[in-house]
Design a protein around this nucleic acid. Structure first.
Lengths: 340, 340
DNA sequence: GTGAAAGCGCTAACAA
DNA sequence: TTGTTAGCGCTTTCAC
């Protein structure tokens, strides 16, 4: 059914010249007689000729495609980061091929293999929450394939990465809660498998300790980043004999779940319990009360990761000086925490 | 820096057999001696051999890749639909290449050209709000490239499509508001250029007319789907001499903007003004009051569109019996509308 | 400035 | 069952 697309050979025949000339005229990096070039360009336009990039990439041994592996399109962080990624990629003549792991290690593996088979020029990876084995990434490194990790990273494979300072951001957020007068602070953490969850938890705990507050293990409950798991975790916390006066959540979605549960118990936010989120998704200002949260420069993370990857691809940066770019966060105070 | 990947020729040499045998052994649709196959498979695994799909696609003249063009990753509708698309594509051995038009016609055009150059086997398209010229899509049809439109479609190019019944959904939603006792109903519409906006507006107007209510042009304000444009539109409505007692919004984001503005005026939702959204994004249940809205089967729309596209690609369906699949919607009643 | 020819890595018709 | 060979559409030496 599909009409056979024109090839440069077709154009060459119609114009009675060699296909090399057509090929050269189509790109503008060769000495071609301006008239000849114009003739080629005119015909190409007339016939809607499109270079077959499959063939060009095969020949050139580069595809000008960046592969991206993210946990899910539905996590606002990633849909926003993707915007930044596309932007920088396009600006540099690259295109993007995105796969979602759906938070599953096996799919993450399959995604990476697929992108490798497609001969992408480099990879941007953010781990699934299931990923505990990092050999697939170490392998990429060994094979010399440019990879940059972002947001959900690990240290094991010693890859370049772009991220925020999870530890200090959590430390600051918790301190903020303490300064606002909270003393009994709970934490809903993220999956144990992720470095980022652990850093945030560590920051939380250290803030308490440094302020002479006690860390109560019953008040640190693990979630899986979902709103529902946030509800469940909050429920467990509220079932303790003592009520907390604040809860610091590993991400915004979990904070929304916690808020829901707190309200269901007839408690008031922030009067009874302050709630602090993490990431600053667009929704945070929409919920009621609007969520106080740690704001990440999401789009910039995507942009910088792409920029860095392109430098590796174009060999500007040697993979030996592995780079770790840490972007700043800031606390955005809204209505879910008591005022200082 | 990048190590040269192994090719089937490398494997063939190491195993002292021909590359055709290796090629055949690697896929399992040929008669190959089980022992031979095993040897190939073992070595391939040992060396982490990955078939170069660029070369395979060039030779086979099909890439097993579906191209997708959406307005933006950041619109929850699309990130959810993408999940459905990926799911069906993967289940059928296809992969997905997504581009966002960022709501710009020129980028939409560039996206389609890029996907065409990449020789995708078919295209899934949802229009940018800027798109008023449909020749690029008509051209696809003429070239015999399988295309299925979804959500934001147009009739001009006579392409197969998967969508909801915008007219009747809007009609029902508006009727619901009327039945709940509202009489002075405003509408914040979407961009004029999109068929879907117009159908929703038409449904809204007809519901009023059929109930003997007057359509007040001052109460129909156009938005661009964004929260901010919803605020602006609502402001204009609230500046009319008479206050409405309900507002029907073209999408949820606009409804959030409207809610914000209504509250800023010190009015209560739904006591003073009922607010109805459209789409049922996950956020709707999080805002306060939770948004009553028209629920679309988002993931199913993505799934069905992909299913249909695959049927065209695999020539099960002739492009002549162009198909239009209409999925059902339902009103989800939450707290932003007065009760019946 | 242009053409001829080789070859990227793969698949498949044809032969053995 | 396996090997030989041609060729997918392109880029790029190397001639002229």
């Amino acid at each position: 059914m599909q009409k056979k697309p024109y090839t440069i050979v077709d154009l060459a025949r119609m114009l009675e010249m060699s296909k090399s000339t057509v090929s050269r005229a189509l790109r503008d990096q060769y000495d071609v007689n301006p008239e000849t070039r114009q003739k080629v360009l005119d015909l190409a336009r007339k016939l809607d000729f499109e270079t077959n990039t499959l063939a060009a990439s095969l020949r050139e041994k580069r595809s000008y495609i960046i592969g991206v592996v993210i946990p899910s399109f539905s996590i606002p962080f990633y849909s926003i980061a993707l915007g930044g990624i596309q932007e920088v990629a396009s600006a540099n003549g690259y295109n993007v091929m995105v796969c979602q792991s759906d938070e599953k290690y096996e799919i993450e593996l399959a995604n990476i293999n697929f992108l490798l088979k497609s001969r992408v020029d480099g990879l941007l990876v953010s781990l699934s929450k299931d990923t505990k084995d990092f050999r697939h990434l170490a392998k990429l490194k060994n094979r010399g394939i440019p990879v940059v990790m972002f947001n959900r990273v690990m240290d094991e494979a010693d890859l370049p990465m772009v991220l925020i300072d999870d530890y200090n951001s959590a430390l600051d957020a918790t301190r903020y809660l303490i300064e606002s007068g909270c003393r009994k602070i709970a934490h809903i953490s993220g999956p144990e498998s992720l470095l980022m969850s652990n850093k945030r938890k560590q920051g939380f705990m250290d803030a308490l300790l440094q302020s002479g507050l006690q860390v109560n293990d019953e008040w640190i409950i693990e979630s899986d980043f979902s709103l529902e798991s946030g509800e469940l975790a909050m429920e467990k916390i509220l079932n303790q004999p003592t009520l907390p006066d604040a809860v610091f959540c590993v991400c915004d979605a979990v904070a929304f779940g916690a808020m829901k549960k707190i309200r269901e118990r007839g408690l008031s936010i922030p009067k009874d319990i302050s709630v602090m989120g993490f990431t600053d998704e667009p929704v945070t200002s929409l919920v009621s009360p609007p969520l106080t949260t740690v704001s990440q420069p999401i789009s910039e993370i995507g942009q910088q990761a792409t920029q860095l990857l392109l430098e590796y691809i174009q060999d500007i940066k040697s993979p030996h000086n592995r780079k770790k770019e840490v972007l700043p966060t800031r606390i955005v105070v809204r209505g879910s925490t008591r005022i200082l």
